[in-house]
Design a binder for these strands. Structure first.
Length: 744
DNA sequence: AGCATGTAACCTCCACTATCA
DNA sequence: CCTGATAGTGGAGGTTACATG
């Protein structure tokens, strides 16, 4: 149950029906002048609503004694006082158009720089300035502090904009309450003859969909749709949404809260709460109904939302001490459900169970919260998927408690990692919700397209508190999951492969376990370059007499070149016909023998730099690049052509490799031999000004010539021998190797 | 460039089963 | 055992977007 206060809020009656205290739904919003406040409207609102739950706006101290106990929020400002009672406060977020009860708000502290009033750091003496709608001083009565996200968060994220909104809705130009009857409302509620509400929020009908669509290009947080003619308060809340999701004319100063920026060395570790990185800028806060929220994960140590690293931040899956690991991967396809559909259940594992995640190395006694969200399938740029959201599955089949959060428009599930369970969680509560492409693509700033963008990954995060008060954040992403309907039934899916490598000669039999295999299924091994050019493909022999729809037995074809010296990564997929194709699976061909690398002669001064005494054994001479067995290294004549293919691609995989991994790649000679921008052995760009490649690592041991060319000085690259094979297992070098081999 | 057409993908809805109270 | 509610699954048809001529 997550409520995004930047979306729609409205009132419902005890039956969950939105309040009939309707108003002109096109009422002007976000009047900034408190003088426009209409006290009569306010009093009418107050009159029509029960009095046990209050939202209070006015001059008085909002330290309402029952604020937390009875879900009462209070607003403080310069305008007259308004009391709004909420039998239940419901909400439409951009995911669920059915009401979400937020009657007992619990929330974290949203920090929204320049858009919200920020929490005071300590006491009410802190001044919050807002020259937009309320130039006075705000005196928070409760300091949010670290992890104390209740009232302070409400104050900051909700109440101040709410005050603004209420002011707006209460303007004389706005009818406080008119016209819309409950019937009208009911007419807009789902009318499906079959009751099949989505878990747990229910679904939206096509009629609603069309109506809403015609009224608003999208329903997301940034541009909330205003499709429900609700009470004045709702308009107020809509105004609230607008006031927050659009840059409000409010200058906010938070004197006591400084931002800090992390260095690379701090990746994965985050400081205590008071330090909030700018990018955190949490745009959303959320409420959780008391009936499940705190109880569900009672005692779970969850990092306060305001300090969470952004969801598109790359985080390591392990540190020296901890490792977050997916023990059971999800199946490679899961038909996501739309808002208009019922739930399609939780993501399952290929084994029939559900994904399992474990945090290793944790010795604390406090449970931690495992966060789950839906990420993109792009492993080079893992970020929340714009078109899919995690969906909380409830019901008897779900054994794992979970709760939802909303963070920057991304829904997050939190599951407890319990020490008594060895910090292992069975994620049987995570479904996948598909958002309509049209809705998302129209979002301001959205660049992704939804069409055919149907692959996702489950992303798991955990934030481990440290004795120092810092947090170590770990993240791991699952294998990709195809979420479309079609693939579930027509595309073959490989869930498990018996082998992941063999020698270049091929020959071993391999069993594939998966789905949608047919008697016509083919298994194609192929090799592509980094730029998706196909270098090679070979069809495996399939033993059709043994095959079933879930099992495929095949014989691995030989690799095209039996004389490789390094493991070569290729892929294979299962084809059903021309277009029904499984996701590519990784396979590695290994050389017949591991080559021994002879040292290349090293200049004396270089040798001295290595800390060696005496002279190296003189082996082969440049410009050749040979291995101990006399074969050529890939730094041979083709090498230069190959590595020059990436002159200006800083994000290219080899570059990434050189930067992200401690595999040495350094030139000791002049790069002037290359035509065009020079690149290092792994494609990393050599500075045109310095002629240097990226910083050399300190543990290079063996010098290998990487190319030769007439009339130029040999250029050497240092490669730590023990890393060589592993290096080629990496994508970066694989990409390089692909290009290299393409050139051959 | 603009249009018509075919195709594939998207999205919604229906039918059905299973489970449980 | 029946009924109703709920959850989940599979399928299909209308709509929409895109590719192609």
């Amino acid at each position: 149950m997550v409520v995004n206060v930047f979306s729609h809020l409205f009132l419902v009656d005890d039956a969950g029906i939105p309040s009939s205290h309707g108003t002109n739904r096109t009422s002007p919003i976000a009047h900034q002048d408190p003088s426009l406040y209409d006290e009569e409207s306010a009093s009418q609102l107050s009159h029509h609503l029960p009095t046990d739950d209050l939202l209070t706006y006015g001059q008085s101290d909002y330290r309402h004694p029952s604020m937390l106990a009875s879900h009462t929020g209070a607003l403080q400002g310069n305008g007259p006082r308004i009391e709004i009672t909420c039998p239940d406060l419901y909400h439409y977020d951009h995911i669920h158009t059915n009401p979400v009860n937020i009657s007992r708000p619990m929330l974290d502290i949203p920090y929204r720089e320049n858009q919200c009033l920020s929490p005071a750091s300590s006491t009410s003496s802190t001044s919050w300035h807002s020259d937009g709608y309320s130039p006075g001083t705000y005196s928070p009565c409760i300091s949010p502090g670290v992890g104390e996200g209740t009232l302070a968060g409400l104050t900051e994220a909700v109440l101040c904009p709410m005050m603004q909104a209420i002011q707006a809705s209460g303007s004389p130009n706005t009818s406080p309450r008119t016209s819309i009857t409950e019937d009208t409302f009911l007419d807009r509620r789902p009318t499906s003859p079959r009751s099949r509400s989505a878990s747990p929020q229910g679904k939206r009908t096509y009629t609603e969909y069309e109506t809403q669509r015609s009224q608003s290009p999208r329903f997301g947080r940034d541009e909330p749709a205003e499709f429900y003619p609700l009470a004045n308060l709702e308009d107020s809340m809509n105004s609230l949404s607008h006031s927050l999701t659009k840059p409000i004319p409010t200058k906010i100063v938070r004197p006591n809260l400084e931002y800090s920026v992390y260095t690379e060395s701090q990746v994965g570790m985050f400081p205590p709460m008071p330090e909030v990185k700018k990018e955190f800028a949490v745009e959303s806060c959320y409420f959780m109904p008391a009936n499940w929220s705190s109880q569900a994960l009672a005692g779970v140590c969850s990092m306060p939302v305001a300090a969470l690293p952004a969801l598109d931040w790359p985080l390591p899956s392990s540190t020296e001490q901890y490792e977050l690991k997916i023990e059971v991967q999800p199946r490679q396809h899961h038909r996501a459900h739309y808002e208009t559909e019922g739930s399609r259940g939780a993501v399952k594992a290929s084994t029939g169970g559900h994904p399992v995640v474990q945090l290793r190395g944790y010795t604390g006694t406090e449970p931690l919260a495992l966060q789950v969200f839906i990420g993109t399938a792009d492993d080079r740029n893992l970020r929340p998927h714009a078109f899919y959201q995690v969906h909380r599955i409830t019901g008897k089949t779900v054994s794992t408690n979970s709760q939802e959060r909303m963070l920057n428009g991304t829904k997050i599930l939190e599951v407890a990692l319990e020490p008594k369970e060895n910090m292992r969680a069975v994620v049987d509560c995570a479904g996948i919700l598909k958002l309509r492409n049209a809705d998302i693509e129209l979002k301001k700033g959205e660049t992704d397209v939804g069409r055919k963008n149907t692959r996702v990954r489950l992303v798991f995060r955990v934030h481990v508190p440290q004795p120092s008060g810092q947090w170590i954040s770990l993240q791991v992403a699952s294998q990709t999951i195809e979420c479309s309907q079609r693939s579930a039934h027509e595309h073959p899916v490989v869930d498990h492969q018996e082998l992941d490598h063999c020698s270049v000669l091929g020959g071993p039999q391999m069993m594939l376990r998966g789905q949608n295999f047919t008697s016509e299924s083919k298994v194609i091994f192929f090799e592509k370059t980094h730029v998706d050019l196909q270098l090679w493909e070979a069809e495996a022999k399939v033993y059709r007499d043994k095959c079933t729809s879930n099992l495929l037995f095949l014989e691995i074809p030989p690799y095209r070149d039996p004389n490789i010296y390094h493991p070569v990564k290729v892929k294979f997929h299962v084809l059903n016909g021309k277009k029904r194709c499984s996701q590519p699976q990784n396979f590695t061909y290994t050389p017949l023998s591991v080559p021994q690398i002879k040292p290349e002669p090293v200049e004396e001064y270089q040798y001295a730099q290595l800390g060696c005494t005496g002279r190296p054994i003189m082996g082969i001479s440049p410009p050749s690049c040979h291995l101990a067995d006399g074969r050529m290294m890939p730094g041979g004549p083709s090498y230069q052509r190959a590595h020059c293919m990436y002159p200006a691609a800083p994000q290219h995989a080899p570059m990434r490799y050189a930067l992200d991994h401690t595999v040495p790649a350094v030139f000791s000679g002049s790069p002037a031999h290359t035509a065009g921008p020079a690149t290092s052995a792994y494609g990393s760009r050599v500075s045109p000004t310095t002629g240097r490649s990226p910083p050399a690592r300190s543990h290079q041991q063996t010098y290998l010539p990487v190319h030769h060319q007439r009339n130029v000085s040999p250029v050497r690259v240092t490669i730590k021998q023990e890393n060589l094979d592993q290096a080629y297992l990496d994508d970066g070098l694989y990409a390089y190797h692909s290009v290299y081999t393409e050139q051959c």
